[in-house]
Simulated scan of single mutants.
Amino acid sequence: MNERDFADLAVGHALNALSEADERAYQEALAGNPNWDHHVRHAVDAVAAIGDSVEPVEPPPSVRASLFARISELPQDSAVSTSPNESVVDDEDYAAAGPAVIEPEREAVTVGASSASGWGARRWFALAASFAAVLVLGFGAVTVSQLFAPPAAVVALQQIEDAPDAQSASATMPDGTVATAHWSPSSGKSVLVADGMPALPDGKTYELWFVRGEDQIAIPAGIFEPDADGNATAQLTGEMHSGDVIAVTVEPAGGSPDGTPSSAPVLAVATA
């Protein structure tokens, strides 16, 4: 299981939406990769933020009426006898009865998840649909796309990991910050994943650089801000060349005004 698959499972775990098999896979992956625990914290914080962002609303009477109407349609036989050659097939999941129509699950092409993980596009859609049903009932005004669309840097990281020429390199700074650079020449993308970066004062930001060649020319590659725990997944803008050093400096908000580093790097990962 790669880190992206684990991050998906962490969301399902935070929502208590994992199957027994996925929960076991989640626990085993976490035990084997304790440094991935920041994904768990992010997922728990996101679920809590969703809950805190909306006011409780009493469900309308129509919900109860619709539920009981669906229940009344169920067969009232106390038992069903079947011969050895017969089987009972459930055509509908009545446990999911409610005011919203639930379409039967169809076969779909899994996107953005490895074959080792059961957490693919269909589960994301089902999870999003569950939130959509809540939102339709008036429990919130946040769009599903806002809640579940992965950040561009995360998408880029997945594309790199899926590429046949994916590469990575890591470095640990004196202050304890751990950084891993991920890149793939065929995808043309590069991403820096960092844990434990110090918080910056107001008016300051972190800026990415490609440091290139014997002359150590620094080429700006975007700015980013870590989360409250000092973790960040940041995609570098521009083309990475073989042998580049990926560096991070502290710059004024908005990035270096003259396009050159104004301070020594606080983080550097050699890719050669």
Rank of each mutant, 00 (worst) to 15 (best):
V109S: 08
T110Q: 04
T143F: 04
T110M: 01
A108C: 02
S115H: 05
P104C: 06
P84H: 01
V89C: 03
A126Y: 02
A133P: 00
A126N: 12
A163K: 07
D93F: 04
E86M: 09
E92A: 14
V134C: 02
W119C: 02
A108T: 14
Y94R: 12
L74A: 14
P151E: 12
G98M: 02
L137S: 13
V142Y: 00
V154S: 09
S114L: 06
V155D: 04
V136C: 04
V142W: 00
V80F: 13
G120L: 03
F139I: 00
V88P: 00
D93K: 03
V88F: 14
S83P: 00
A141K: 13
E92D: 13
V144F: 01
V144G: 01
L157E: 04
A121S: 15
V111P: 05
T82A: 13
D162R: 06
A156L: 07
L137A: 14
D162N: 13
A156F: 07
A129L: 09
A163F: 09
L147Y: 01
A79I: 05
W119V: 04
A97T: 11
L74V: 10
V136D: 15
V111M: 11
I102D: 05
S117D: 09
R122G: 02
S130Q: 08
S78T: 15
A149I: 00
L137I: 01
E92G: 11
P84K: 02
A128L: 02
A152N: 10
E161K: 13
I160P: 01
S114E: 11
V136A: 15
A95V: 04
V88A: 08
S87K: 10
A108R: 14
A79D: 10
S81D: 11
T110N: 11
D91P: 00
V136H: 12
V136G: 07
V111K: 14
W119A: 02
P104Q: 03
A156P: 02
D162Q: 13
S145R: 11
A152H: 12
D93Q: 10
E86D: 12
A108V: 13
P104D: 05
A133T: 11
A95K: 05
W119P: 00
A113L: 02
V88L: 15
A95Y: 11
S78R: 15
Q146T: 14
P151R: 13
E73Y: 04
V144H: 01
Y94T: 10
A121E: 12
G112A: 10
T82H: 03
A96P: 00
E86S: 09
E92M: 12
P99N: 06
W124S: 03
V144P: 01
A126S: 11
F125Y: 04
E107V: 07
V134H: 08
A153F: 10
P150G: 08
P75K: 06
F131T: 04
P75E: 03
S83W: 08
G138A: 05
S117W: 04
P150N: 10
P151T: 06
G112K: 02
G140A: 04
V154T: 12
A121T: 14
W119K: 01
R122M: 05
F148C: 03
G138T: 06
A129K: 13
A116E: 13
V101P: 00
E107F: 12
D90H: 07
A163Q: 06
V109H: 07
V144Y: 01
